[in-house]
Every structure is written in structure tokens, then in C-alpha cells.
Write a protein that binds this DNA or RNA. Structure first.
Length: 364
DNA sequence: AAGGCGTGGCC
DNA sequence: TGGCCAAGCCT
């Protein structure tokens, strides 16, 4: 008898599976990516839903699949437009990886999303969760799709006290789901686990009295549902002080900068900015020096207009915002000059949208 | 293994 | 209001 069978007998597993699927088929939410089983649409939705709430994703998903309806459309699109469609969703490497992967599907698999685990799972940005989710939902493959919901639900069902913040723990849940998953309706089973986690088996205050698998739940029986899952805490983010400038010239052109292709907010656009140090030089002096040495423009910088704070998962930016007038531009400047109306064609992170909003409200 | 990588909503 | 999260992946 293995560890899982000690927790639940095969007969009870059969009943759990049936109860879950019946509930899902009756209670599932109507969502745009559930209109059909198009593997491409399912894939896009799963990537958008990584670490992101359903309500946030819905409008992005609708616009995205309208603009890029097929693998081929996305594969052939300009990265600039793709990033713009993702603007505000966060974790921008997701969409750059998705486009990389879709290009490979277009070229290596004739535009058809591969249904084989090794092929699909080998694509950029497709990890163990996304692989299981897309292949089960779109192709009815009985492959586990273990996300945060599934770990929460199953930790309670089976009373699993391993720390879900540890990468290794996910494999424990994959083994459990392998034993539980329906081979007749793997799509409904996987989605049912996630839907249950989203609607009933919620993190803070689970609705156990409404739960379709309450009588299968070890945590409910023991009254420990609010203590599970166990999740260790992350350290709190450090703070970076920065100075940014909204630069214009006599023709009213605005000067913007493209971020590097790796790292934070890769390939997005921003207003020229630099990290500042407390000490000898003022922020204005540090900014002016940065513009001349690193950006190739000489400018007159005005008084401090305000401060923008932006909180990332792992980092806080405190940005002092200035306005500046460009006096001289080097041939090798790293800044792009655009008119106000063109700004909307470029993808900016929310932090820099806040900077523009501050500038725009002061000017008008 | 642990940390980088966004954002908005909730209490 | 600051901490915690929400359908993870990459290095």
C-alpha cells in the first residue's frame, strides 16, 4: 500500500473524481476561452492566467485573440504590436516567450499546436503546468496540471503539509493528481480542480459548506482547512530610488527610451531615468549627467514635479519626476523622438504610464 | 534551490 | 496600509 492509498481508498478516489466533474459541468463559469477547444486560444489563456486573475485577463484575452486569431497571425506579428497588446498585464517575458514558441509551431509543426507532451512541453515558456493544462483541455490528454489552486485543493483533500513554496513540492501533487485524474474527462477533471480552488476552496475563507467534495476532504474533517496549504514567506522587496525626466524639445517632440531585451520590463519603452544615490550631487545633477553621458542629449532640467512609487513583486521604485528641455542632441543618441499622438503606439510599463500621467496633467 | 520577473485587488 | 495574493516559468 503506497502513501496515497493510505490517504484515500481507490473507491473513494473514483467517487471524488465523479463528484468533482459533475460539479464542474454544472457550475463552471462562462469564460471567453471556454467557447471552444482551439488549442491556440487555450494556450494563450493559460499563459495570460499565469499569476494573474481571471477578471484581469478577460478583456486582454478578447482583444488579443481578435488581433492575433491564429498561431500564424501571432507568429508573423511585429513584436512591438504584441507587447502593446500585453501592456499592463505584467510578466512581459510571458508574451515574448509565447511568440517565440508560436513561431516554432508555425515552422516546425506546420502551425498546428503539437499534442505530444515532449513536443509541446519543449516550447519556450511552456512549463509543467501549462503543458498539462493545454494538452488536457484542448486535446483531452490525462496529464496533471498543477497550479496554485490544485496544490491548495489537494493539500486540503489529502492533508498534505509540505511547503508549497518549495519547487520540489509540486511533484508530490503531480503524483497525487496522476492517481486521481479521469481518463475519460481529463479536461473537466483538471479544470474542475482549478475551478474549485477559484470559487469554493479559496485561500482565506473556503466555502466548505458548499463544497461538492466536502465529504472527501481530510482537512475539513479535521478542521484544518484554514491552515492549509503551508506556504513559507518570501523576503520583502528592496527599494530603489530613481529619477526620471519627461524630455521635450522646441518642436514638441517627446524623448523615449527602449529598455534592454533582457531582465525587468524587457523591450518596453520608458522615459529616460537612472538610479540615484544620496550624497554629493543633487538628483537633477545626476539626471543631467546621465542624459549627457549615457543617452546622448544635453538638457535643462526643471524643478521636481512629483514622486511616483511603483511596487513590483521583488522591488519598489521611488521615482522623482522632472520635466526637461532638450538643448542639444548627439547623432548617436539612444533616445527616440516621437510626437504626443505616437506615444500610444509604444508599450510602456505601468510605472512609466504614471510618469506620463503626471506630466500630462500638469501641462494641460 | 532560490530569486528574478508585473500588476491590481483585497482586507 | 502593507502584506498577500492570482490558472508559473526561467535561470
Amino acid at each position: 500500500m503506497n502513501a496515497l492509498e493510505e490517504k484515500m481508498k481507490q473507491k473513494d478516489i473514483d467517487k471524488f473524481r465523479e463528484d468533482l466533474i459533475t460539479w464542474f459541468e454544472r457550475e463552471q463559469r462562462i469564460l471567453p476561452w471556454r467557447e471552444n477547444q482551439d488549442p491556440y486560444r487555450v494556450w494563450v489563456s493559460e499563459v495570460m492566467l499565469q499569476q494573474t486573475r481571471v477578471e484581469t485577463v478577460i478583456p486582454y484575452f478578447q482583444r488579443f485573440v481578435e488581433q492575433f486569431p491564429t498561431v500564424r497571425a501571432l507568429a508573423e506579428a511585429d513584436e512591438e504590436k504584441v507587447l502593446k497588446a500585453w501592456e499592463g498585464l505584467g510578466y512581459y517575458s510571458r508574451v515574448r516567450n509565447l511568440q517565440t514558441a508560436v513561431k516554432e509551431v508555425n515552422e516546425q509543426y506546420g502551425g498546428v499546436v503539437p499534442a505530444e507532451e515532449k513536443e509541446f512541453g519543449g516550447l519556450k515558456g511552456v512549463g509543467p503546468y501549462t503543458k498539462g493544462a493545454v494538452l488536457s483541455i484542448a486535446y483531452n490528454k490525462p496529464i496533471p496540471a498543477v497550479d496554485g489552486n490544485v496544490m491548495r485543493v489537494m493539500s486540503r483533500i489529502l492533508s498534505i503539509w509540505d511547503d508549497i513554496a518549495k519547487p520540489k513540492t509540486r511533484t508530490i501533487f503531480e503524483q497525487a493528481v496522476k492517481a486521481f485524474i479521469s481518463h475519460e474527462k481529463p479536461s473537466e477533471f483538471n479544470q474542475g480542480l482549478m475551478e474549485l480552488g477559484a470559487i469554493i476552496c479559496t485561500p482565506k475563507s473556503p466555502s466548505c459548506l458548499l463544497c461538492p467534495v466536502q465529504h472527501h476532504c481530510s482537512a475539513f474533517a479535521e478542521g484544518t482547512e484554514r491552515e492549509l496549504p503551508v506556504k513559507s514567506k518570501k523576503k520583502k522587496p528592496g527599494i530603489k530610488t530613481m529619477a526620471a525626466v519627461v524630455l521635450t524639445d522646441e518642436q514638441g517632440k517627446i524623448y523615449i527610451h527602449k529598455r534592454p531585451s533582457k531582465g525587468l520590463l524587457a523591450n518596453l519603452w520608458e522615459f529616460p531615468n537612472t538610479e540615484t544615490q544620496k550624497g554629493i550631487k543633487t538628483e537633477r545633477e545626476q539626471l543631467a549627467s546621465f542624459l549627457e553621458k549615457d543617452m546622448g542629449v544635453k538638457a535643462e532640467i526643471g524643478e521636481l514635479e512629483g514622486i511616483v512609487e511603483h511596487v513590483f513583486t521583488h522591488l519598489v521604485w521611488n521615482i522623482s519626476v522632472f520635466f526637461g528641455k532638450v538643448k542639444q542632441v548627439s547623432d548617436t543618441t539612444k533616445l527616440k523622438q516621437v510626437i504626443k499622438e505616437e506615444l500610444e503606439e509604444y508599450a510602456f510599463p505601468v510605472s512609466h504610464q504614471k510618469i506620463w500621467k503626471m506630466a500630462d496633467s500638469v501641462q494641460s
